[in-house]
Design a protein around this nucleic acid. Structure first.
Ligand SMILES: [Mn+2]
Ligand SMILES: [Mn+2]
Ligand SMILES: [Mn+2]
Ligand SMILES: [Mn+2]
Lengths: 216, 216
DNA sequence: TAAAAAATTTAGATTAGTCTAAAATTCAAA
DNA sequence: TTTGAATTTTAGACTAATCTAAATTTTTTA
């Protein structure tokens, strides 16, 4: 159907589209670790196949067809991540790279049965929503911990940054998905935050607070 | 490490090597649905990487290094097939195509954990042995039903032909792996065979008998 | 609003894998 | 053992995806 590479472009455009309406050539190049010239070539090809809306120099949006493909890749990526963590005991910082490969396995039957096997999970190990077989999902209303006021209480529900280093750090300090936290103090100089987590005080940097997401 | 295509060539050479010592360009071309000229190009590349022993016009054998790679692909293929049948309820005739894709997922960790998750199965759904993480396996002593004498008793343990059509046919007549059979009669004109299977008589053609393997 | 800077596209190459057609080699008869 | 057939390799081309360098367009800023 579509090549491995085409799928990666569509996925990249999809993710970038959640940030800004239209996506630029340079944004795509950066996110795929490739060069702008290569991106332009591929955009022509994807436009030819009507997977994107593209006009020279004007940026890109996904067509309906393209979004459908992108969502199916995202669905597969997140379902496989869930499988790796829940069934094969991978850690949440170990699954992304493997899922980058697994998401390109084409069998529709496979992904739907995998979904069924796991009981139709709604969120992946990083708190990201898993689209259903029709591409539908409801995203949680997430706020970065850095945006909260003192005394706010919330549940850790997602991350903004997916690097193994960050995820390992969170795990080490037990700040994992599902935990309840309360903001105890915000340092007005460096914006570091003191949290209450299971009766213990925990200091986190502004950087960590920025990339940690909660539901109220 | 190696490309998808290189892996498929190594696997094809591996399987062909179980039939004849040295493998020919044309055999590989036929098994991969490609042309002899393309095969020659790839053989040069694989020889360059020391994955095969190759001398112009002389046929090919796998090097130790090449065999190791081939065995890891075969291991993955068969483990995934087992997973699909045992965990996701695929039928034995539906798994091969999907496994053709899954076998190229590179993570060593993934395949070893999958193996563990399933309890280190020894045989895939078609009765083929699954190499362990070191590439070792013991093949059953298999005989085609067509080679048996009247009154021989055996257990269905493998197939020589893996086409969905053949597998579906076997399933329909309940001739599946593990079943006990007894040869009741061999027709001397067309070599069709009458079997006893769970107190019922079953007629199979020479063709089926040829592709159905048993252990004594 | 006219440079200058930044972003994007085009031009021209490169690499992997494939093909057809032609040449070379091996094998099998006669 | 020569000749013809079959097999295999080489030559030359093509496509997908990538790159660098140069040209073009858009955006910024003075
Ligand atoms: Mn991921
Ligand atoms: Mn994830
Ligand atoms: Mn198979
Ligand atoms: Mn099999």
């Amino acid at each position: 159907m579509n090549t491995f590479t085409e799928e990666n472009y569509l996925k990249a455009i999809y993710h970038l589209s959640t940030q800004s309406e239209s996506v630029s050539t340079n944004q795509i190049a950066a996110s795929l670790n490739t060069k702008a010239a290569s991106v332009t070539d591929m955009l022509k090809k994807l436009a030819e196949k009507e997977l994107i809306n593209y006009a020279r120099y004007q940026g890109v949006t996904l067509s309906q067809k393209g979004e459908k493909v992108a969502l199916s890749i995202v669905r597969k990526h997140r379902l496989w991540e869930y499988f790796l963590v829940e069934k094969l005991n991978f850690k949440w910082d170990e699954v992304h790279e493997v899922a980058e490969e697994l998401e390109h396995i084409s069998s529709r039957e496979l992904v739907d049965r995998l979904d069924e096997f796991m009981g139709h999970p709604k969120y992946d190990p990083h708190g990201d929503p898993i689209p259903d077989k029709n591409g539908h999902f409801k995203a949680n209303e997430l706020k970065p911990v850095s945006s909260l006021l003192v005394d706010t209480v919330g549940i850790i529900s997602g991350v903004r940054e997916h690097s193994p280093a960050f995820l390992q750090h969170l795990e080490k300090i037990k700040l994992v998905i599902g935990k309840k936290i309360k903001v105890c103090d915000i340092n007005s100089y460096d914006h570091s935050i003191t949290l209450l987590l299971e009766d213990e005080l925990l200091y986190i940097s502004r950087d960590v607070a920025n990339n940690l997401l909660i539901t109220l």
